[in-house]
Design a protein around this nucleic acid. Structure first.
Length: 516
RNA sequence: GCCGCGUUGGUCAAUCGGUUAAGACGCCUCCCUUUCACGGAGGAAUGACGAGUUCGAUUCUCGUACGUGGUACCA
């Protein structure tokens, strides 16, 4: 029925995420990886990570490991990667360097590419000479290539001589003239480009490394990639890739393209960047990123207290929608319902409030054990000593609904473990009087004889004394809360008192009484 | 400048020619709660603009505007 689709339908689905190891892993990058992962898993396929480290000048130590760690944390670890080798190794383009040149040469041989010997100065001169108001950025293309120093304008002998003398050169694609280059994008449908407007992109650089354009085509072919997802910023260079697949004779093996919409900054306009996060106070990287060049650490979603479940859930919903009202999806549910037909075309502004809402929902959804596993190390890292997991579990139950991020558990539960370091005295001092001081002394003396310290009994005694002394409960509960918690928050006071025990309760009451 | 892509409430979005134009986040009000949350019930708020096609356009076509991406020996 659709013969042109058959070659894809019969193949094992293979998708890839191909980041450059140049820094922190951005939200948009994780989402590209996530969609690639979901698509592959939905079709029982393979998800590959290929490191695009062809630009040696931008290489950052540690970035590759970091990216793998991020994917791991998100639960979308690749099936094949530099660390988990597979049938198409190596998975680093720098290690694949010897593989690219032959294809560049093949293109030259077939007349679809050419040697270019222009120096950076030559290029600069051409651009300066041709630059005008109408044409602010002149290109190396069909209109200019015959004025440049390349194997199209030089004789074969001249070219061979330059080559023999090891003259630096690049290989450029020779874009065709007067041709409409078309392809079908999974998200956007048919896209057409005028070949005259596309420049002769460099394929092989002076250092022998391929550019992205050559490498992505060669590697997607060699690695048998069937579906290639990438950011929308690649759309303008897609025609170059389309022609490359064609010229290399691999047209029938070309993957289906999907150019994902951009994630935009919440205010104003433009692509979301690390700077926006710094400015607006939210992370844009998946995990903490330590930049060895600046010695600066940028906060990540993980470290600020996001659950990986929530993180991929919110990312999935940023640019995709199931069509139903359900918004909370586990990874497995996403795999089941994900479809490219429901990916949006337009960019989406990132909304941190909504992101936090997802985490809050996930916090409610996960098991108490799971929650404890995540929270315990956070509390311990802040110096809280946890002797009893059963007690921790009770604390978590008591404060869970009040927490949005994992780190909130600290402020919401420190007072269960230690005496508050500060008390919001201003909240009670103005209305304080001797009657109230007497109330608390009476409370302690009556409680001293309690055999079974618990919230119900404490509350009864508390109320009885209040009634006897004719003081409103509200006037007493708040001070009591401040004494135990330090501030105006937390679960019911009597419940807190029961949990921290009689001794701690009295200790804190006396402490604050002394401050009034 | 040129080229590509996009445009439903403040934000994420449903709708695939006929609806009172869903739902969620956020915001506001009320209830619950003598704290902060959770929860519950309500509310305000939307099809960029202009043509055309059609009995009928948010939906299809064209134009305009706006936004965004690209225009490197960076990816």
């Amino acid at each position: 029925m659709f013969p042109y689709l058959c070659h894809h339908m019969n193949k094992e689905v293979r998708t890839r995420f191909a980041p450059s190891p140049t820094g922190g892993l951005h939200l948009g990058g994780v989402r590209t990886a996530l969609y690639s992962y979901l698509y592959a898993k939905k079709h029982a396929g393979t998800f590959v990570l290929r490191v695009e480290d062809t630009d040696q000048t931008r290489y950052v130590e540690g970035a590759e490991k970091y990216i793998l760690d991020c994917l791991d944390w998100c639960g979308i670890a690749p099936d094949e990667s530099p660390l988990k080798s597979g049938p198409y190794a190596p998975y680093r383009q720098s290690e694949r360097k010897p593989m690219y040149k032959q294809y560049a040469l093949q293109l030259i041989e077939n007349g679809h590419a050419y040697y270019a010997f222009d120096t950076p100065e030559d290029l600069e001169k051409m651009r300066m000479d041709l630059k005008s108001e109408k044409n602010p950025s002149p290109q190396y293309d069909h209109s200019t290539r015959m004025q440049m120093k390349n194997s199209l304008t030089l004789t074969t002998e001249e070219v061979n001589e330059l080559l023999a003398k090891n003259t630096p050169y690049v290989v450029r694609i020779k874009m065709p003239s007067n041709e409409t280059i078309s392809f079908t994008d999974m998200i956007r449908g048919e896209i057409n480009n005028d070949s005259n407007l596309v420049d002769d992109k460099v394929l092989l650089k002076g250092d022998g490394m391929p550019t992205y354009h050559l490498a992505v085509v060669v590697d997607d072919y060699l690695m048998k990639i069937t579906h290639a997802f990438r950011g929308e910023e690649w759309l303008p260079s897609a025609p170059v890739h389309i022609k490359l697949w064609d010229y290399l004779g691999w047209k029938n093996e070309m993957p289906q393209w999907a150019h994902l919409p951009l994630i935009l900054k919440p205010d104003g306009n433009g692509k979301l960047s690390k700077r926006d996060g710094d400015r607006l106070g939210f992370p844009v990287f998946a995990m903490n990123w330590f930049d060895p060049k600046t010695n600066e650490t940028t906060i990540g979603f993980k470290e600020i207290g996001f659950l990986p479940e929530a993180f991929i859930n919110l990312l999935a919903m940023l640019g995709w929608h199931s069509g139903e009202e359900k918004e909370l999806f586990s990874k497995d549910e996403l795999i089941a319902v994900f479809s490219m037909e429901r990916v949006h075309k337009g960019g989406a502004k990132f909304d941190y409030e909504k992101a936090k809402w997802f985490n809050h929902e996930w916090l409610k959804a996960i098991s108490e054990d799971r929650c404890m596993m995540s929270v315990k190390p956070i509390l311990e890292s802040k110096g809280i000593v946890i002797q009893d997991d059963a007690y921790l579990l009770k604390v978590i139950r008591a404060v869970k609904d009040r927490c949005t991020l994992l780190n909130d558990f600290y402020t919401q539960s420190v007072y269960f473990f230690e005496t508050p370091k500060s008390f919001d005295i201003d909240a009670i001092k103005p209305k304080w009087n001797d009657d109230k001081t007497a109330f608390f002394h009476e409370l302690m003396s009556q409680c001293a004889t309690i055999k079974n310290w618990n919230a119900v009994e404490l509350e009864t005694i508390f109320k009885d004394i209040a009634t006897a002394k004719n003081i409103k409960m509200g006037e007493l509960q708040m001070p009591f809360r401040i004494m135990l918690v330090g501030g105006k928050f937390g679960p019911g006071v009597f419940e807190i008192a029961e949990m921290i025990g009689k001794e701690s309760t009295f200790e804190r009451v006396k402490l604050v009484l002394g401050m009034l």
